[in-house]
Design a protein around this nucleic acid. Structure first.
Lengths: 355, 355
DNA sequence: GGACGAGGTGGAAACGCTTTCACAATTTCG
DNA sequence: CGAAATTGTGAAAGCGTTTCCACCTCGTCC
């Protein structure tokens, strides 16, 4: 009654039925042998294997999912973009762990748009992914709070386990595995490093209210100042997004609108540090000779400029997300919540302050 | 006879049957209304929609694929790693275009290992992906040629359309969409830029026989030398992989084993340029004051150091791959083969040679 | 020497959907 | 005004698997 099943390019895919009849056994036997779930006589096994080889048989994953208990052996990762290095590393970790655990990795990017995120999560839901890993905050637009209710509910009904990486919680009624990292602690260490080198006027680049990551790091910066009894000066906090261009812009503005009233810079992430570094160079200012600088993330390109920065275990974040989600799926219980540590990587971008 | 279908976390997923009975229509009607393929009376449509809302119904993608013509509405991307910026950008392009065309994006990384690549491609094949996009060469180990036969055949029988991005062809019997970019032309422009600034002793970093990308760029470098009548000196070509650490290593070795016998550097990609840049800095050499440098790729971090480099349309490569694959799937014919252009981005890493 | 397990195997239901076919209820037309 | 075309709907087959149940064939035990 129906056209023969064909794959995308018209090549016919052989089915388990064909394998069975070629091997002279029932489909049930083929299925069992391939799954390795039941004993089978060596002779039968050999015949089946030969037939599989002959027909170049590969099981149809969709049929398998449908017939089985609807376990799709896949995890989904949803993030802002893959080109942002931090996200790329996390994605790499997710993919690696997923593959290691025999899962397929689905990926979707949102560009930070809540609507797109929602659409993608819905799409993932159709796929029955075992876990949906949400990485990084979405841009909080004006309708965010309003949308939040519908949003959280939609996410809650994903039916998959939800994992939040470095991201604001969705609400008390939305259970989720959480993988955090110590933003405040790292920023405290970074700022302290500058302070202990004698710097007191430390420009902080990347304030961003409403973004957990930025907020946590700003918090660590302020705490370090307090710990060293250095007065906190709001004018030394520049607002901007966590991107290269923004770092460049913030530093440019700073340098063009007045005298250089700082001796060191704490960039809330390495991207900002990179942009600021470039802006300084264009003004003939050298790091660390003229200005000391510390970043946050420890991304590979930061080595180009010898940036002292806070190391974040990016890939481990991704791996942990998958591992915890799958464990939680297997054992149940309360969704786990971990916070990963950070440490300062000292390179060559800080000099003691000249007096 | 079977347990009720449950999703991963035990939440029950409603089925089309439940929607149908709640709306008081047949499943066929629900299916048609949701697909929008047939007319339906406004009343029925409204009732169905209400039921869908009520039950929070989302179709099961696996069942849909199985029942439909086995079209899975998904494309797969297989690459070395996501953390390498070039690959990340390509992946971003693939994901963006896939989403734009209503497809889901599957992703897998190989670490450059042919065996893992094969395993992943097999996995993708089970999924019935509409296209499998292979990005970048796999490491050519000693058994490569031998394995190539089996390998090409396995890929050929993927049943999905195959797309090769910046990658050596698999063989005449393996039809594939090919998306290339002009490595030789870009390298020619980059080297010419250096030559026209008066540089003659130009160190080329990243020779790598057997790798199409590296070979193409080396070729462009040599051609430019020839065009300017500058004698080609094999000693000025350093061998290494296209990675940061390798760039660092190559430059370190160069500087520590003899006098600095070059005035400019052509790095086969920006990663190498970054590493070399750092090594130069550690030896007190500045770019461009002491050494001129040109890279290849135009990755974002290259802006940190103001690198003049060859721009590659990374994301467009990915988007083109998806677009062509899908078009080819729809219209058939010979698989398309495109080569994308490049252009030089002039920043601040080249100075005319002092005499 | 018959009952009983255990090891293999096959038949068939079920998974959740799409689509073909058939058919009833309209509308349109000569 | 009756026949033909159109429209909306339902029943059921089928997609390619897995798995439950039943069955058969042995070897083993009392």
């Amino acid at each position: 009654m129906r056209r023969a099943s064909e794959s995308a390019d018209g090549r016919r895919r052989s089915t388990i039925r064909e394998v069975a009849s070629l091997a002279g056994v029932s489909v049930a036997t083929v299925s069992r042998i391939l799954a390795g779930t039941y004993p089978a006589s060596p002779g039968t096994r050999a015949r089946v294997m030969r037939a599989v080889q002959e027909l170049d048989y590969v099981a149809n994953a969709h049929a398998r999912v449908l017939a089985g208990n609807n376990v799709s052996k896949s995890v989904a990762i949803v993030l802002n973009s893959v080109i942002s290095p931090h996200y790329a590393h996390v994605a790499q970790g997710v993919e690696a762990q997923a593959t290691a655990e025999g899962r397929l990795c689905l990926i979707g990017t949102t560009g930070g748009d809540p609507k797109r995120e929602l659409a993608i999560v819905r799409h993932m839901r159709e796929q029955n992914a075992e876990a949906v890993i949400l990485v990084g905050n979405v841009v909080a637009d004006d309708k965010y709070q309003e949308r939040m209710g519908q949003y959280a509910q939609a996410l809650a009904s994903v039916g998959s386990r939800l994992v939040l990486c470095g991201r604001r919680p969705l609400g008390p009624d939305v259970p989720a595995v959480v993988v955090e990292y110590d933003n405040a602690g790292g920023a405290f260490a970074a700022t302290s490093h500058l302070l202990s080198a004698g710097h007191e006027r430390i420009l902080c680049l990347g304030r961003r209210p409403g973004y957990t990551t930025a907020e946590g790091r700003l918090d660590g910066y302020r705490k370090a100042l307090a710990a060293y009894n250095v007065p906190h000066e709001p004018g030394l906090e520049a607002e901007g997004m966590m991107e290269w261009d923004e770092g460049y812009r913030m530093m440019k503005e700073r340098l063009s609108t007045g005298p250089q009233d700082f001796t060191a810079v704490f960039a809330i992430n390495d991207l900002i540090a990179g942009g600021a570094h470039r802006a300084l160079a264009e003004h003939g200012l050298r790091v660390p000779d003229d200005v000391s600088m510390v970043g946050f993330d420890d991304l590979p390109p930061s080595r180009d400029i010898g940036l002292t920065t806070v190391h974040l275990p990016h890939e481990e974040i991704g791996r942990t997300a998958v591992r915890l989600a799958l464990e939680h799926a297997a054992h149940g219980g309360a969704p786990p919540h971990v916070v990963l540590g950070t440490h300062l990587v000292i390179r060559d971008s800080v000099r003691p302050r000249r007096r």
